[in-house]
Nucleic acid binder design. Structure first.
Lengths: 150, 150
DNA sequence: CCAGTTATTTAAAACAATTCTAATCTTGAC
DNA sequence: GTCAAGATTAGAATTGTTTTAAATAACTGG
């Protein structure tokens, strides 16, 4: 095999993968071909809400050969590593959200789709105290919407 | 069989079933033995969060013979008829909530259980406009809690 | 109260999303 | 390179839920 020239760029933002690579390493996950490819698909397209099946289809289209089982494993590992947020609103599918910032969601009842609501557009002004011995880990606000007049 | 004396009480709240019966009829549902028995189990125990499997088990213990398929059908029908609220927070189970008043929920991450938060203990002060052509059907607030320090 | 019609119930099969299994490959450390 | 631990895979298994088709029960008009 020919040895290729790889430009050695030391700028932080010019190495889009070192960050993910570091986060994977930090979570004790080896940066394998599959995990890197899935991370690329997940994080290069802006904020997304996707299911395992959707990501698997994405991978196929991008000619990344990866099994569905690996997609499931990877999504859960990324979730545990704090790279993804898991959202359950529909009993038939589990979404993973690449947007980790503070925000909430619209849920379209008919289509089962999700859309982000920026964190500053929802204000939860009052919350009860957590039950004894418990602490709040997150507050999810889901605004369910339907076509007008339906 | 002996003919029993049934006190003829005309007070509204002394006929716990006529209300459900009317609502079933209103929804075009025949008041069958199974539906009436399930309604009794559901609505005589105060506010509850239960899954189809849980209600089915309840029915067995109460010696009500009802198939699991009927429990699923009935829960969905009651939901459509506005007698129950459906809650999905955990991809592995769908809960039905007998409390139809305005309220929200605590979700216990480890056990997968739900608890009510009275409506007046949560205040959503700001909400975005619904997307074009859509209207808000409901706002769900889920406060996820975990054991302190976990 | 009967016959006819329609809704309901049921066991069993089918299903969809997800997880598990056991075998085969990769990776990273030496 | 060698090796052990970790990762991937196809396929089977599992779980929660829905569907099917047949049997049963509820309603309706006479």
């Amino acid at each position: 095999m020919m040895k290729m020239h790889i430009p050695h760029d030391t700028r932080q933002d010019a190495r889009p993968f070192s960050q993910i690579l570091d986060r994977l390493r930090g979570a004790g996950l080896r940066p394998t071909r599959q995990r890197m490819a899935l991370a690329k698909l997940l994080f290069e397209g802006g904020d997304r809400h996707l299911t395992a099946e959707m990501l698997h289809a994405d991978a196929q289209s991008a000619n990344v050969r990866v099994s569905l089982a690996t997609v499931y494993n990877t999504l859960h590992q990324f979730h545990r590593a704090g790279l993804l947020r898991e959202i359950v609103v529909d009993s038939q599918r589990t979404y993973f959200d690449t947007n980790m910032s503070d925000h909430h969601h619209f849920y379209f009842d008919q289509s089962g789709e999700l859309a982000d609501i920026p964190g500053d557009q929802v204000e939860v002004a009052a919350l009860p105290a957590a039950p004894d011995g418990m602490e709040v880990s997150r507050v999810d606000v889901v605004v369910r919407v339907r076509p007008q007049g339906a």
